[in-house]
Design a protein around this nucleic acid. Sequence first.
DNA 1: GGGTAATCGAGACGGTACGTCGTGTCTTTCC
DNA 2: GGAAAGACACGACGTACCGTCTCGATTACCC
Lengths: 199, 199, 199, 199
Amino acid sequence: MNSEEKIRKSIGARRNPASAEAILEAAKAVLAESGHAGFSIEAVARRARAGKPTIYRWWPSRAALLLDVYQRQKQFAYPDTGRIESDIVAFLTNLLANWRDTVTGPVFRSIIAEAQSDGSAAEALAAYAASRRIETGKMIERAVARGEVAAGVDPAVIADLVSSFAWVHLLTGRLDVNEEEIRAVTRAITHGIVKKSGT
Amino acid sequence: MNSEEKIRKSIGARRNPASAEAILEAAKAVLAESGHAGFSIEAVARRARAGKPTIYRWWPSRAALLLDVYQRQKQFAYPDTGRIESDIVAFLTNLLANWRDTVTGPVFRSIIAEAQSDGSAAEALAAYAASRRIETGKMIERAVARGEVAAGVDPAVIADLVSSFAWVHLLTGRLDVNEEEIRAVTRAITHGIVKKSGT
Amino acid sequence: MNSEEKIRKSIGARRNPASAEAILEAAKAVLAESGHAGFSIEAVARRARAGKPTIYRWWPSRAALLLDVYQRQKQFAYPDTGRIESDIVAFLTNLLANWRDTVTGPVFRSIIAEAQSDGSAAEALAAYAASRRIETGKMIERAVARGEVAAGVDPAVIADLVSSFAWVHLLTGRLDVNEEEIRAVTRAITHGIVKKSGT
Amino acid sequence: MNSEEKIRKSIGARRNPASAEAILEAAKAVLAESGHAGFSIEAVARRARAGKPTIYRWWPSRAALLLDVYQRQKQFAYPDTGRIESDIVAFLTNLLANWRDTVTGPVFRSIIAEAQSDGSAAEALAAYAASRRIETGKMIERAVARGEVAAGVDPAVIADLVSSFAWVHLLTGRLDVNEEEIRAVTRAITHGIVKKSGT
DNA sequence: GGGTAATCGAGACGGTACGTCGTGTCTTTCC
DNA sequence: GGAAAGACACGACGTACCGTCTCGATTACCC
């Protein structure tokens, strides 16, 4: 924080990494302190001691800035325990905990909110979500490869279902999910809720 | 549309239902035409030929107005086909179609977005979502009562999972879901994705 | 200055004279203190504790605001001494002194400068200058009526010439004109510089 | 125009005359096309394909650049017809026509406007105007030498009066002056407007 | 039946943020 | 060491809404 005090000047005809750093840091701080409502380019610029045009030069929209903050911060674990059920439980537990304990939760909430009004944010979010479905889907693919899961199952669809549960808990402020509930949800997805015939 | 043309005056020292009606109608129209981005109290007042204070008097926040619009519009079917699987498929199909084909989709997207920054909106949304989980959960309860579903299953948790899938598709602009995918998701929840032992 | 401290609120759906007053006063003060370079709508709004939109609501441009300030401040004497020569000397002396000793000088300089880039300002200035030529021309007309001045003389043209001298002295920072020079200029206009034949 | 197409490179550690030329040419063009409102160092640099610092290195302010453009462009005739009256008419006609038909008009308007806010511009303009008064005054001096004009007349003062008329017409967009008016103004200055005694 | 009181449309108010433009300074790379 | 390029911090631009206010009018309700 002390090196931030002095005014940053241009370092010539190229991007100043110190400014980019300061802006991302400020965006994170503003969001953490004031939430989505208080998050504005103006506030970030003030906080970062940066000019608004500097922000707009590199991030075309609020959403782009938020996505960048999110990317730098997120820390996903794609567990590989050898059993699909515990993989999903670990994935959900880790994801919700990460959202709850770091600034990533508020940031991602803001991104989703932003995407509801801003078209480009919607596109960016859609692209990101798709890539995440593929990534998360690999967890399912491994289970298919292991023969643990039926071959007809589409990994992306299951990944969609799993992360939807997490998204909605984020959006409705229910990140402190009981582990029992995670387990129940996971069990539903893996083994279903219908009584087994002959059982 | 003809009743909109003439200017509404006060009808004395009590609420004018025509104004309330006009405001809700205008809110719906603004949202349908301009989306969440163009939705503002100012725009609604302009459209309804109402004063801003009239809106603020009866709806303390944007979210309250949106929720009111949503309540008047939603049309849920809680199917009862006698089989949990077709119940869920019908429920999801109906819900997504309703969101896609009416203004309820944009309205609900806006409510969720609003709830990310506005505390009271968040509360209202949380309460609403909880009541819907109970309502939707009844579909599961009936299956439990029929003995179709294992007794240990918490209906609200399954309802949560089912509607989370719908919410996220709404929020990411994927309302035109393939029926096959709905079926796949439903099958996962009812029968699981794990290979049956002994098969 | 003490009554200005408390925040002015709206007084209903009509213009608040206190705000208009405060804005004009602030405009005058900003111009007096910082000159044309420091004069901005932003600065006036800050100084007047008014919102920028309030200024833009009533004055469409910087020039309109400046003109209004000028109108409120100017104090012209149209002398009528019975002799055209002393009338013009008095007029010029008074005009230059007024520009030098009050804020009207800087204000009018700003208006002229503004009119060089802003089309609407140019129009407003042209209209104002024309009306002033007519007004000042009356001084000449009286001399014509008295038979002091030849009948063929166009009062507006002479008024133009007289005030041009003043304008240019304002614009080039030469408001402290020697009275001798005013007299010389006036004598040229009234009696010419060419030697009288037979004199 | 062809030399503008290819990118000028640095020619080493000395001033590149091609750049200076391109900048002055661009300044003229920008002013001719967009007027004073669109004239900015930024726009000139863009047009000249030059870096802003290159401009700032050689011209410390907008005004300096404008003055330079003006100097290169102006074309004054100091007529010498042998009669003061036709000299002044020719001078004014030529000056106004020059301002109207070339870019010098807009350029000089800009310089005057600039001088109202920029101190150094004001100084430069004052110096220039003084030198022009002396130059134009020579026209009067010749008439004095011819014995056409009274000896007590200060040439600079009359020059001031004459060019003031032109300046104000430039500044108020009245360059298309009727020749009759020029004649009337000139006649006023040379022979006065007061009826001759004994007539 | 007359006075009060609440509601209406309207729109001005002080503000905040928007996204863009221009300012003058700085630094690097190339010649 | 000058020239190009363009990033930088800054701040004004003019606009859109925010939520609050005060108005004049229009009734219903209570005395």
